[in-house]
């Protein structure tokens, strides 16, 4: 059984429907990407799963229906969401952001915090700095580390490349990839940048105007002619 099983997912904003019945899944420890252009509904998908907007259809985590659960409850169930634009809490320090990430845990966070400072040394250097004063790339790493602080089983990662320079994005993907392999956490990534995403993920779906049009392994998607033209610049 898949860790996350989604069937017939629909969602919208007010009277405008954005998603028209999506079917996809993520297995434990797997990295899956949903590719799509601007406006295809990628962010809406994650927000629907996360309980931030009302949604229809079904989503099961380990068989338990979770659609419509509030974000903070979903986190306790083991799903962490790194929102678009990073969502760092700008008035808190780096360390405080990490602490908030682990706020649902009852054990001592200090050990984990130190570990993340080892994985992301730049964050360690800025541990008492206000999160809002860091660069985009550093904030992205902070947001990801923060999500992992809750020791989730599944991380929803929304367009980490947005607003970041290519080199920085590559570095972020590299770090996240290593994290995922090490911790065995599943990741559902939505991205525009197909190149990096298909290196990172093992499986993928392509979203167009609120519907999934293609699905397959990363290799299959990379080899697909139409996708190459549309998303990889052939």
């Amino acid at each position: 059984m898949a860790l996350l099983e989604v069937q017939g997912l629909t969602a919208g904003y007010g009277i405008v429907d954005v998603l028209f019945g999506l079917d996809f899944s993520v297995d434990a420890g797997e990295a899956v990407v949903i590719l799509g252009a601007n406006g295809s509904g990628k962010t809406t998908t994650l927000r629907a799963l996360s309980g931030m907007i009302p949604a229809g259809g079904s989503a099961r985590l380990d068989g338990t229906p979770v659609l419509g659960t509030r974000p903070d409850r979903l986190l306790r169930a083991g799903v962490a969401h790194v929102p678009q634009g990073r969502g760092t809490i700008v008035d808190l320090t780096v360390e405080e952001n990490l602490r908030i990430g682990g706020s649902t845990r009852r054990d001592d966070l200090a050990g984990d915090i130190e570990r993340w400072f080892e994985v992301f040394p730049r964050l360690g250097e800025r541990r008492t700095q206000r999160a809002g004063s860091m660069s985009g790339g550093e904030q992205q790493m902070l947001a990801i580390a923060r999500a992992f602080m809750s020791r989730p089983r599944l991380v929803l990662l929304d367009e980490p490349s947005l607003g970041l320079a290519p080199l920085v994005t590559a570095e972020v993907f590299g770090q996240v990839g290593a994290l995922v392999r090490e911790t065995g956490t599943a990741v559902l990534l939505v991205e525009q940048n197909a190149n990096l995403a298909l290196d990172f993920a093992s499986r993928g779906y392509v979203l167009e105007a609120g519907r999934i049009v293609v699905s397959g392994t990363a290799d299959e998607l990379r080899g697909d002619e139409a996708i190459r033209k549309a998303y990889l610049g052939a």
């Binding site: 903070d72 306790r76 962490a80 969401h81 990430g101």
Partner: peptide, 8 residues
């Protein structure tokens, strides 16, 4: 919003 996503 972010705080909610972190479980607060």
């Amino acid at each position: 919003e972010s705080s909610g996503l972190c479980g607060v």
